[in-house]
Simulated assay, not measured.
Amino acid sequence: MNTLSPLRTLPLFLALAVTPITYSGAQSTNHPAPLTRAHAHNDYEHKHPFFDAVEQGFCSVEADIHLVNGQLLVAHNSRDVDPAKTLQSLYLDPMRQRIKKNGGRLYANGPECTLLIDFKTEGKTTYAVLGKVLAEYSDILSVFKDGKLETNAITVVLTGGYSREAVKAQAMRYAVCDGKIPDLEKNPPANLVAWISEDWSKFFKWQGHGQMPVDEKERLIQFVTKAHEQGRRIRFWDAPDRPAFWKEMLADGVDLINTDDLKGFQTFYNSR
């Protein structure tokens, strides 16, 4: 079986979660090796969102947003929103602070990273507010002008209930979209749909115990190969979260490994 070529056309991804910038981790002297294939799933549910992830070297972190009274609040459920926990205070501001400290990158001399923003409220109205907020952070965010990408320290990727049409309509924007497996057949522009985010259980039964069935492995590699041919990355959510599964995903070319076990994944990855 041929080795898959590395994806060169898109930046690495950093999706984010939630932590007050008063947390001491913002000033940490820890300099971990960037984990370019690690995605901190629902990062905001950790004790110190964002900071715990970057202290382990994660290059992709996830924030769920709710539009409430004109503010973008970070929480998984609407009942958990807190006016103090905005996208700016929990992510964009500490990211900017860290990027300035590290000479223009989230990690000194490191890769571009991704903030994955998951829409939990209506797509068009939420994006109208988000677009204005992101423009205020143009100094750290990748920008898309007239179909061309100008990379920066952070690339924002949208998932969940966003409006793809609202994003597509902008000649200049600070975000790209994710897609689903059917998008591999439709093949939208990679500078609009930059990666594939899919539910593992919709296509696979294997849960990381024993050998992965041959037919499922072949199907997975087909998805990965097609995504890479189109210039996209691929990740799976609602997936097993254990070393045997991580090992198989890395071997088969999956770009971003979803995990809630930040320290466990770092230990696994660095000991390979």
Results as ranks from 00 to 15, higher is better:
1 M>H: 12
1 M>P: 08
3 T>D: 10
4 L>F: 13
8 R>T: 15
10 L>I: 15
14 L>A: 07
16 L>K: 01
22 T>D: 12
25 G>C: 04
28 S>D: 07
29 T>K: 12
31 H>Q: 14
32 P>V: 15
33 A>G: 07
33 A>C: 10
36 T>W: 04
36 T>C: 08
36 T>R: 12
37 R>K: 10
41 H>R: 04
43 D>C: 11
43 D>H: 11
43 D>E: 15
43 D>S: 04
44 Y>W: 11
44 Y>S: 08
44 Y>T: 06
48 H>V: 12
48 H>N: 10
50 F>I: 09
50 F>Y: 14
51 F>C: 02
52 D>K: 05
53 A>R: 00
56 Q>P: 03
58 F>D: 03
59 C>D: 01
61 V>K: 03
63 A>F: 04
66 H>I: 09
68 V>N: 06
68 V>Q: 12
74 V>L: 10
79 R>F: 09
81 V>W: 08
84 A>T: 12
84 A>R: 11
85 K>H: 14
86 T>L: 15
88 Q>K: 15
92 L>H: 09
93 D>L: 07
97 Q>L: 05
97 Q>H: 12
102 N>H: 14
104 G>F: 06
104 G>K: 03
106 L>G: 09
106 L>F: 05
108 A>T: 08
111 P>L: 14
116 L>F: 08
117 I>P: 00
118 D>C: 08
122 E>F: 04
127 Y>T: 00
129 V>G: 03
129 V>H: 05
130 L>G: 02
132 K>Q: 13
134 L>V: 14
138 S>I: 07
139 D>K: 01
140 I>P: 01
142 S>Q: 00
144 F>V: 13
146 D>P: 00
150 E>T: 15
155 T>M: 05
156 V>T: 10
158 L>P: 00
158 L>M: 13
160 G>E: 13
163 S>M: 07
164 R>M: 03
165 E>H: 02
167 V>D: 01
167 V>K: 00
168 K>T: 08
170 Q>I: 07
172 M>Q: 14
172 M>G: 01
173 R>P: 12
174 Y>E: 13
180 K>A: 11
186 K>P: 02
186 K>H: 05
191 N>L: 11
192 L>F: 02
193 V>Y: 14
194 A>L: 15
197 S>G: 11
198 E>N: 15
198 E>Y: 03
201 S>P: 02
204 F>C: 04
206 W>D: 06
207 Q>R: 08
209 H>P: 00
210 G>W: 02
215 D>M: 05
215 D>V: 12
221 I>L: 14
222 Q>M: 03
223 F>T: 01
226 K>M: 04
229 E>H: 13
235 R>Q: 09
235 R>W: 11
252 D>Y: 11
253 G>E: 00
255 D>P: 10
265 F>P: 01
267 T>P: 02
268 F>W: 10
269 Y>K: 05
270 N>R: 14
